[in-house]
Write a protein that binds this DNA or RNA. Structure first.
Lengths: 340, 340
DNA sequence: CGTTTAGATGTAAACGTTTACATGCAAAAT
DNA sequence: ATTTTGCATGTAAACGTTTACATCTAAACG
């Protein structure tokens, strides 16, 4: 029942070192003894004690995924993308969310020295100095997910926030001929949100939308802030023609707001989102949005981490920045363009 | 930088044993020495090496959550519910999904002996003999989530599947006066699905619905099976008045099917679901369904596990079976009843 | 035939912590 | 004053594995 390397050694009449070597396919062990040891290991249905192995090797086959909080669809796709790659590489995924009272710093500080993790994937809303400092003590590879403004040390995977918002804004201006837009943004201290704001601004500038017709209203990515600020926007004397929400959840809130105000989408006011969450296609009208390939984002982050762990990082000294392309999803929450 | 118990011992001029005891609040250490040791530990910002601790104690502060596959909203809520409780108890959550080629058995077999986990929460579609056997070797507490037919060994948390489907079926028969129903079920080898089928059957029997008007069509919980079988149902010569889907995803599929067939919900055919996933309230018409409190399910499962781990299980020898109550959510995908 | 060499195996330490047991010392009991 | 008691601390083993180094054996070489 207790099948350890020691027991195998006893039965095979060899030392535990030889057993260890044999089982790890170390070349300096005869094919004959390897076979014998393997046979006995199979008989005992030996499984290595990974806790012991990790401990002595000072690494771990567990990678930590640190998330601000475990909430929606977004995270479940991310986890899936990451876990798939990890699992294929014989790594396990530990999901750590920075909860209510515990801060990210505190969590990081314990975890970095716990010896429990062999690598770290961190989704950071904004990359602050204290976190940078803490991370520099980590003896394990780290990959960042998200905006990552101010990061020039770690590999990072982000959505192409800029392209996404730029594209949709451009579409609204050029294809739909909207001339009065508002960006319902995320919190400015969120790097993704900040980039999206910049893209909206740049695009409106480029196409000569006067600044009073390219306002930015700051929300917090939640549905309720979408409802609240959506109402506010609809009450504006200079009511915009279209709300460019920084994510689908807030766009959803705008739908609620429109309903409350008795406005119809897109005739009275148009709405667009970002993310293309599952519900968006089922809304009435269906939501025009920017598709974010979250699962792919997780995938890439994990791939990056694995390549560092396996040491076959083709460019060990440069930092890799991967941008996941976004895709415009035109549906019915905006004015239909006359085709042809 | 390398702050170990050994280094603290050296600086405090005591043995490592004393340090260990002091830091673990073992009563047999003077308040004076404890303070000294704590002070030095703080100075060095000592954090225990959990890998080493887990290894020597032959337990772990990581609990494993085994899922069939990491996919939708459902799982992210479950993870959230579990992780919250674990985190509050200083446990971490490792998410393990049984992937494509690796079977649940294989995964369990490695993990049970890996020493990586201190407890296990398993979501099992159906609880088979090989899995039972494997689980019996686990030296750690185990809690099951889901139907769990045939389990009489482990603590288990399940949705009240029976009550949920019974209630909604009864509502359709008694309140809405439907007399021809069909149950679009999940796979029969899924315990939750099996219980839902039974509830539908029992309820229809109880209210004297003839069996040809209480058919059961077997789907597989996916949206696409909902589309396919929804179409089939709508083509039946004895077309039912209402489809009682075993989950919201399949109900969603039925919406698509109705659209394709040009049928209107609920006038031509009514549809109900189970789960109350996020999208359901936003469908047109909004979906009448049974609300499943998934997060609570996870919560309870983790609570159960924690109480076992902390040894304050009030009833160590009996198995705890917790049923999470469901709640009817009446919306517009069924005939409105005349109120009063 | 003796010596070198290379390859296979063994020996033992190491990882950081916990903990059973031993020791020492001071206060309490005689 | 001597013995007992009880408590604080120290000693050392243990957990299962890896791995640097030592040792042994047999083949290759002169």
């Amino acid at each position: 029942m207790v099948s350890t390397i020691k027991e195998i050694a006893r039965r095979a009449n060899v030392s535990i070192a030889t057993v260890s070597r044999a089982l790890n396919n170390n070349p300096k062990v005869t094919e004959q003894t390897r076979e014998l040891i393997q046979k006995i290991a199979d008989e005992l249905s030996y499984k290595p004690n990974l806790a012991a192995r990790n401990f002595v090797k000072k690494t771990s086959n567990v990678i930590g995924l640190i998330l601000p909080d475990i909430a929606d669809e977004f995270f479940s796709e991310l986890i899936k993308g990451i876990d798939e790659v990890c699992y294929d590489n014989d790594y396990y995924t530990m999901v750590i969310s920075t909860h209510r009272y515990r801060t990210l710093e505190e969590t990081l500080n314990s975890l970095i020295r716990s010896g429990l993790l062999g690598g770290l994937i961190i989704l950071i809303p904004n990359f602050t100095e204290p976190i940078k400092k803490l991370l520099s003590f980590a003896k394990m590879p780290v990959v960042l997910i998200g905006g990552g403004l101010g990061n020039n040390e770690y590999d990072i995977v982000s959505l192409d926030n800029y392209q996404g918002i730029y594209d949709i804004t451009k579409y609204l201006i050029r294809k739909c001929n909207y001339t009065n837009l508002v960006h319902l943004s995320g919190p400015i201290d969120n790097d993704d949100a900040a980039i999206r704001i910049q893209a909206f601004r740049d695009c409106c500038n480029e196409f000569n939308i006067p600044s009073q017709n390219a306002q930015i209203i700051q929300g917090d990515f939640t549905r309720s802030s979408g409802v609240l600020l959506g109402m506010e926007i609809m009450n504006l004397k200079n009511k915009p023609e279209v709300i460019v929400a920084a994510n689908d959840m807030m766009a959803l809130g705008c739908y609620d707001a429109a309903k409350k105000k008795g406005l119809s989408i897109p005739d009275d006011i148009a709405v667009t989102g970002f993310d293309d969450i599952f519900v968006s296609q089922y809304l009435t009208p269906s939501l025009t949005t920017v598709r974010a390939q979250i699962e792919k984002e997780g995938h890439q982050a994990a791939e990056l981490l694995m390549s560092k762990l396996n040491g076959n990082s083709h460019s060990p000294n440069t930092i890799n920045r991967i941008k996941i392309p976004t895709e415009l999803v035109i549906r019915n929450s905006i004015k239909q363009i006359n085709k042809g």
